[in-house]
Structure formats: structure tokens, C-alpha cells
């Protein structure tokens, strides 16, 4: 196997030695891109909410103080048994029909009526939510198997662009080697006549509660 490795590397070196070699860059060309014009905090949250809902996800608002109640209202709609990550904030779950993920089996998770999680950040321009296995987000399978995902996004964590998100996520990768999941709407497919149809393997219902949105 070592010989194959050396063979491939030798082939690469032979191939690149022939061509011209543009200078070795230490900075990313990404940083040369013009920055987007900044939005006011409330416009930013508004854009995020609008674009998340364009993917046919439900979007609601809450204050920090009212969050437990806001979550409870949504959960009452769809079932009686939910799962939350092992480190989900205790004050949020006390009143709720939630089981903590303390080594639940895949079957246990799949049979839950839904999952509630926090998130790392939101991206306004694309209506995306990013999970980075940080506090209240749990292991990846938890937010995958149940058919319903209620995701809490703090308004302060919303950024405008994709590059800003990557800048913030650098620490998650470098300091914790965190697995990342970008979620933009519920599971969907475009495989039948290239039209987007919601609901294949991931959660078919995605709901988002934005917390402490300015001006609300």
C-alpha cells in the first residue's frame, strides 16, 4: 500500500512539474470577495425567518423567559414522547414530555414523536441552521431519526452570509473536531421530474423558534 501511495504522489509531482505553478497561497481567495452590506439586527432575523419558511418549515418567536412555554405549545401539537440531547438545558425541559438522550438506542430515538435541540448558528442569506454538537445539540443521530425536529435558534447567533458562518465554525472544527450538519428546511428530494418534494429520510417536519429577536 505504501508503494501505491508513493506511486500516486510521484504521478502527481510529475504532472504538476510540467505545468506552470502559480504561487503557493497562504491566504484564501475567499477573503478577496467583497463583503455584503450589513443589515440591521432586526432585518437580519427577518431575512432568516423568511428564507427558512420558504423551505416549508414553520418559524415562531419567543423570549428567553418564555421559551419553555413556547416549546411546550409546539410539542403539544404532535405527540407525547420527545427526545432531547443529554445536555439540554434543565430549566427548559422540566415541564416538557422529553426523554434525555442517555445512551438511547437507535430504535428508541426513531420511535420518539420528535426531537428538540439548540443550534450553533443560523445563516440568513440561505435560511440555514448549523449544528456543531455544542451544548443542547447532541449527537447527530438524535436530530435525524425522529420525523419531527424542533430547533431553537438564538437571534444573536444568526449571521448574514455563508462565509461568516464558516469563520465562526472554524473554532468548532479546530478546537473540538466537531461534526457539523447544515440544515436548510426539512428533508427533500428533487429526483422526481426535478421538482422539490419535502419529506424523504430526515425529519419531514422542521420547526424553528427564534429566541430574543430584536424589535419583537
Amino acid at each position: 500500500m505504501t508503494t501505491t501511495r508513493n506511486q500516486v504522489l510521484a504521478d502527481i509531482r510529475a504532472a504538476t512539474a510540467r505545468g506552470e505553478r502559480p504561487g503557493h497561497q497562504t491566504h484564501s481567495f475567499a477573503t478577496d470577495l467583497q463583503a455584503e452590506a450589513a443589515l440591521s439586527p432586526s432585518a437580519l432575523v427577518h431575512m432568516f425567518a423568511e428564507r427558512v419558511s420558504e423551505y416549508k418549515a414553520w418559524v415562531g418567536y419567543s423570549t428567553s423567559a418564555g421559551l419553555s412555554e413556547a416549546i411546550g405549545e409546539r410539542l403539544a401539537l404532535y405527540g407525547t414522547r420527545y427526545v432531547v440531547p443529554a445536555d439540554f438545558p434543565a430549566d427548559l425541559v422540566q415541564q416538557l414530555p422529553c426523554v434525555r438522550d442517555e445512551q438511547l438506542s437507535h430504535a428508541d430515538i426513531a420511535s420518539a414523536d420528535g426531537v428538540v435541540s439548540l443550534s450553533a448558528l443560523g445563516i440568513a442569506q440561505t435560511g440555514s441552521i448549523v449544528l456543531d454538537a455544542g451544548v443542547g445539540q447532541g449527537r447527530r443521530v438524535l436530530t435525524l431519526l425522529p420525523d419531527y425536529h424542533l430547533c431553537v435558534v438564538y437571534a444573536a447567533s444568526i449571521v448574514l452570509t455563508v462565509p461568516e458562518a464558516f469563520e465562526r465554525l472554524r473554532a468548532s472544527i479546530q478546537e473540538r473536531r466537531a461534526p457539523l450538519t447544515f440544515i436548510s428546511g426539512p428533508s427533500a428530494t428533487s429526483d422526481i421530474e426535478l421538482n422539490r418534494v419535502e419529506g424523504v429520510h430526515g425529519p419531514r417536519r422542521l420547526e424553528v423558534i427564534i429566541v430574543d429577536a430584536p424589535g419583537r
Binding site: S128, T181, G185, S187
Partner: peptide, 12 residues
Amino acid sequence: ERMNPYTSIWTG
């Protein structure tokens, strides 16, 4: 699409 529904990034 502005973004595809799911992107997974893992490190080892």
C-alpha cells in the same frame, strides 16, 4: 437552491 437541505462535515 440557496442551500441544499443537508450538508454533513465530519473530521475523522
